Amino acid sequence: MRNKTKYSPDYTLLHYLLYMFMLAGCTIYPYGYVLSSTIDKHSTKSAMKKVADWQIGNFRYSTIGNLHDYGIDAWTNATLYIGMTEWAKIAGDSTYYHWLTDIGLAGNWKLAANFASYPKYRMYHADELCIGQFYLNMFDLYGDEKMASSTIERLDWIIDNPQDSTMLISNKQSWTWCDALFMAPAVYAHAAKIKGDDRYLEYMDREFKRTYNFLYDKENRLFFRDSSYFDKTEENGEKVFWGRGNGWVAAGLVNILKLLPENSAYRPFYENLFREFIPRLATLQSPTGFWHASLLDPESYPSPETSATALITYALAYGINDGLLGKEEYKPALKKSWDALLSTIDKDGKLGWVQPIGADPKKVTGDMTASYGVGAFLLAGSEIFRINK
């Protein structure tokens, strides 16, 4: 099927046919699949393997140029490794652990190749910490100190050298954009678990709440991407709430909650936010099972958006698995979103409809993919697989 935009008559017809199929009790998706809303361990594992294998076979990273977005330790690829680590636990195949270990060795298990001369704001930059989640996950598996030492060193330096606390988006020393709530907090929570030192949690909690208080719209129960969107509106007059940006927060909450002890004094805030925020996202799911690039103006961005959908699906499944969301109430939405995600996998295993790197809603086409989208899909799959136990 050719990629269509919202201005294409054929694309409009496709959506009309989509709704007619839905009225008839069927579901049709962008690649033409008609799927049942069933979740089973075998098909989940098969889909995860297909996507993981395609991504490994087509994995590339830059060694010059924009390493912040495309280097081996970039946030984009770090998200892939986080998801791939969860897949490796399910796969029962050491091939994936070998691949992940090779990635760590290639990056020397370090946050940034040239620690001493990195520009100061990037010493704090949340995106640059995302790879630490992967390193600490690998430390948990192998217990090799070199896998964790660079990450712990960076966190210690940040805590000992207070950052500029200005919350405008121009300041990257603080977590001034909502994506940061996926990139950095879980690294601190994991360090606290490894080191048995609450100062990492104290820092994480303080900084998370500063971002929450600044970017969370309590009326809409959604996060602005950053301060530059406070006064912007979509074509329909609604506020701009980016699908993937809110997906980052949803998945970030999961990763924090996975690491916080059940009796932690910090836990109630994150559980309460989860119970408020994730159900709100569930109300914004489209009839096709996807979430769109713009949460409150899906008509301007009618295309599926896989990365937002995968991140939110991850949170929904976790919420059901851990009792934060009612299974009977939320499993139908989960089934729809998982079917939607499965429909974006082509015959070779390429995951499509992933919005490229950005900060706001953008148009998406079926041939667009990205490593962070695959990582998000594998995270979602890992919780979907768990739900069948």
Score class of each variant (00 low, 15 high):
residue 212 Y to H: 15
residue 214 F to Q: 11
residue 215 L to G: 02
residue 216 Y to R: 06
residue 216 Y to F: 15
residue 216 Y to A: 06
residue 218 K to W: 00
residue 222 L to G: 01
residue 223 F to Q: 02
residue 223 F to T: 02
residue 223 F to N: 00
residue 225 R to A: 06
residue 226 D to S: 11
residue 227 S to C: 12
residue 232 K to Q: 15
residue 233 T to F: 07
residue 233 T to G: 01
residue 233 T to N: 08
residue 234 E to D: 13
residue 237 G to H: 10
residue 239 K to L: 10
residue 239 K to N: 08
residue 240 V to A: 02
residue 240 V to W: 02
residue 242 W to H: 06
residue 245 G to A: 04
residue 245 G to C: 09
residue 245 G to V: 09
residue 246 N to M: 06
residue 247 G to W: 00
residue 248 W to E: 06
residue 250 A to N: 11
residue 252 G to Y: 05
residue 252 G to P: 01
residue 253 L to E: 05
residue 254 V to D: 03
residue 254 V to Y: 02
residue 258 K to S: 09
residue 259 L to I: 10
residue 259 L to K: 14
residue 260 L to G: 01
residue 261 P to S: 12
residue 261 P to M: 08
residue 262 E to P: 00
residue 264 S to T: 07
residue 267 R to H: 10
residue 268 P to R: 12
residue 272 N to W: 00
residue 274 F to P: 00
residue 274 F to S: 01
residue 274 F to A: 03
residue 274 F to Y: 15
residue 274 F to K: 00
residue 274 F to G: 01
residue 275 R to K: 15
residue 275 R to D: 01
residue 277 F to D: 00
residue 277 F to I: 06
residue 278 I to D: 00
residue 278 I to L: 13
residue 280 R to Y: 07
residue 280 R to Q: 15
residue 282 A to N: 05
residue 282 A to D: 03
residue 282 A to E: 02
residue 283 T to G: 01
residue 284 L to F: 05
residue 285 Q to G: 04
residue 288 T to Q: 13
residue 288 T to V: 02
residue 290 F to M: 14
residue 290 F to H: 08
residue 291 W to G: 04
residue 291 W to I: 04
residue 292 H to T: 12
residue 292 H to P: 03
residue 293 A to D: 14
residue 295 L to H: 08
residue 296 L to K: 13
residue 298 P to H: 05
residue 298 P to C: 06
residue 299 E to S: 10
residue 299 E to Q: 13
residue 300 S to H: 06
residue 300 S to Y: 04
residue 301 Y to A: 07
residue 303 S to D: 10
residue 305 E to V: 08
residue 307 S to A: 12
residue 307 S to H: 06
residue 307 S to W: 01
residue 310 A to N: 06
residue 313 T to E: 07
residue 313 T to M: 07
residue 313 T to Y: 06
residue 314 Y to I: 00
residue 315 A to D: 05
residue 315 A to C: 03
residue 316 L to F: 13
residue 317 A to V: 05
residue 318 Y to D: 08
residue 318 Y to S: 05
residue 319 G to T: 03
residue 320 I to Q: 03
residue 320 I to P: 01
residue 322 D to M: 09
residue 324 L to A: 04
residue 324 L to F: 11
residue 327 K to S: 12
residue 327 K to Q: 14
residue 330 Y to H: 13
residue 332 P to A: 12
residue 332 P to C: 13
residue 333 A to I: 10
residue 333 A to Q: 13
residue 336 K to Q: 12
